[in-house]
Design a protein around this nucleic acid. Structure first.
Length: 185
DNA sequence: GCATCGATGGTG
DNA sequence: ACCATCGATGCA
């Protein structure tokens, strides 16, 4: 039945709260020809200027500009010259936090592999042209759905450079999912 | 199984 | 010179 659509207020909270609450939620993407529906199983929170793993800690630049704006919009960037990372801007305007979507399960086509942040964007055709896209709109939006995830948390992946922030348990995942991203540590 | 490594390009 | 990654390769 009609799942509850997540509104802008949902994202106007600290990124760790949003990251946790997004586990088990669905993401609906309506393109011209295809419609994707998927369930989010892994996220990471990036807590803004004080968080040394968060891009906004390096300052306000052209790339990170969207994070300094209002919540509920996409922050997309290129990593390793190859992969696009899909984030949702969180917290209020002027507090540049974000949540990275790391893995999901496709509900519309189980064959689609979304078990990693790079695989996720590649499979869904998400790229930097999506930067600043509204994620509480008509074509792309999230829904709360009746699903019992077993939520666990751990340190974030690939941020060893961030000092004490690297050890913080800001990665959230559904322990029952078989579509988690793999990387150890 | 696991460890290591190259691809590839924007960013500061 | 770094990277919020992935997949291939080598060796066990």
């Amino acid at each position: 039945m009609p799942a509850r659509k997540l509104n802008r207020r949902f994202f106007n909270r600290p990124a760790d709260a949003v990251a946790r609450d997004l586990i088990g939620c669905s993401l609906i993407i309506r393109n011209k020809h295809k419609k994707f529906e998927l369930r989010i199983v892994e996220t990471e929170a990036y807590l803004g200027e004080k968080d040394l793993a968060c891009h906004s800690a390096k300052g306000r630049t052209k790339r990170t500009e969207v994070m300094f704006g209002p919540p509920g919009f996409a922050y997309i960037y290129l990593i390793y010259g190859i992969y696009q990372m899909f984030n949702i801007v969180c917290s209020g305007k002027g507090d540049p936090q974000a949540v990275l979507i790391r893995a999901a399960e496709s509900l519309s086509d189980p064959k689609i592999d979304l078990s990693g942040p790079g695989k996720f964007t590649r499979a869904l055709g998400i790229n930097r042209s999506w930067n600043a896209m509204d994620l509480v709109g008509e074509k792309v939006f999230f829904c709360k759905r009746p699903y019992q995830a077993q939520i666990k948390r751990a340190a974030r992946i690939g941020v060893d450079y961030a000092g004490a922030w690297a050890a913080r348990p800001l990665r959230f995942f559904d322990a029952r999912s078989s579509a988690l991203s793999v990387r150890p540590k």
